[in-house]
Design a protein around this nucleic acid. Sequence first.
DNA 1: TTGAAAGCGGTACCAC
DNA 2: GTGGTACCGCTTTCAA
Lengths: 314, 314
Amino acid sequence: MTNIHDIARKSGYSAATVSRVLNNRGYVSSIARAKIKIIIDELDYVPSNIARDLSQGKTFNIGVVLPHTKHPYFTQLLGGIILGAFSTKYRIVILPSEYDATLEIKYLEQLRAKAFDALIFTSHGISRDTLAEYTKYGPIILCEDPKRTDLQAVFSKRESAYREAFNWIKVKGINSAAVTLSRPYEISATAQKTLDTYKEIFGASPKNNLTFTDVVSYEDGMRVAKKMISQKSNVQCIFTNGDDIAAGVKEEYNKQGIQLPLLIGQENQLSSQLLNIPTIDHNFNDIGSLAFELATKKRADLVIPLESKFIIRE
Amino acid sequence: MTNIHDIARKSGYSAATVSRVLNNRGYVSSIARAKIKIIIDELDYVPSNIARDLSQGKTFNIGVVLPHTKHPYFTQLLGGIILGAFSTKYRIVILPSEYDATLEIKYLEQLRAKAFDALIFTSHGISRDTLAEYTKYGPIILCEDPKRTDLQAVFSKRESAYREAFNWIKVKGINSAAVTLSRPYEISATAQKTLDTYKEIFGASPKNNLTFTDVVSYEDGMRVAKKMISQKSNVQCIFTNGDDIAAGVKEEYNKQGIQLPLLIGQENQLSSQLLNIPTIDHNFNDIGSLAFELATKKRADLVIPLESKFIIRE
DNA sequence: TTGAAAGCGGTACCAC
DNA sequence: GTGGTACCGCTTTCAA
């Protein structure tokens, strides 16, 4: 591979001068510049990115930790991040985790090893304490409320949209609802917010047989619907944790020819738009872009809270 | 930042020996190993990725060029690539292109500059000749039929599925259809295959006012439907270039209360499943995984052709 | 078993 | 304006 010293030798100038030409920095006579450029073309030379990175101690890589790629939450977030990175000198590196703590630590270690300039965690399996320990090796941005002052984050505040949605249901004369969740109350902040707000509005938690956890996909939605129908629970409303799940529920009710309860989705995906289901937009796109800006220090905020929006459809 | 020489000095051994310990390579006495490990822990030392890369002339980065991130084609492909990369030592770097030739060249130049070990083009705006020129700097994998022997590729052969679908329409007594395309015939191989197969089956190309290009999203589908309705073209079938587009078309027809023509989607997305629309599966997931394997030379095939599958729903 | 030293391919300071 | 040179931090060969 031809390097800067080859160019220096063949052009009769030094590596330092060639470097100046390459970076348009400092004084170079136009003669030198011209001669050097000719040799560069002649030898088909390109400076090595790696060498440059080493010399500057930066990679311009931003790592994005993704638990999985199927779920729309992550693809939307990733889309936002990519948008933010577009036409910057930074690159987005995908780091799949499957919520595996060992893998997540590996990525943190790579941050420490300067493989990335910064890390964005769209979600995480390891503790916030562990994450905080690694901030000394580079910026680490979370996409949820960190609830502490030693971690940077961008996130959407869900409570008021939840409140709005539950009130909207209540105004319709409905006094309880089934609720689906992706992860159980004990370990998921989102589940806690959902159920806590539910209780606040309806005065009590949803009945046990009307709370479903580990619901993630369209198929899960159908499964939930089946169970609800066989239970003859006659709920008037199902508050789902995602548009695709709501879609699955609707499909199953339709299939069985049973009157559909009031359905609420989340994430403002194509499917809810398609089926005219009210939903809650958690601003994943904006969160992604902003997370990128924090990662690259284009913005210096500690946390950026956004507000989720309830989207009425009827 | 503490480096390998610090460890060498403090441990009383040389950098070479430390390096051996780090990489479990060559002869190191167990005493030396133990002593060095203690110092490594003590100084909280991690070897620099960049330096290692420079020294080895590799980055373990695979660049993936994506025209855009909204379109499900690309997200599915990306999902497959990520799957293929999971638990390998390689990283996936996202390179958004917007079909911009300047950007694509920039990425090729970065391959040349050793910023990536290989490049996967999910699609491209520049010519295949240009791509072929850059293969000397590292593996370049396409996700479409290159139709030449100097480019590696994984792709799905669409013709027979197209033929099957058009025949299925024909058997229903329908003798023409509207067609939507993401890019025009002149520049898109997919458009060419669609229209050529159409002509083969129906004996003529679709009428001009029934061919729509630059159709990419759900909204575009609605736009197309609006136009078709206002034209009073009374088509009996619309062959779309994506499930989400088909969904948009259906939505607009329903909204206006007009009898829906036979609809065909592509990509086997959630939306076609949801709306019971026949579709064509182009194996994007498999293509992604295989492209990754070619990029990292885990497989050495020149090209890997797969077969698209027509999925009947009625 | 170990270490010296020559890369890898740049950048940047400082002297001329 | 230009060049010498000391890094950046690790790997690897070869001699001891």
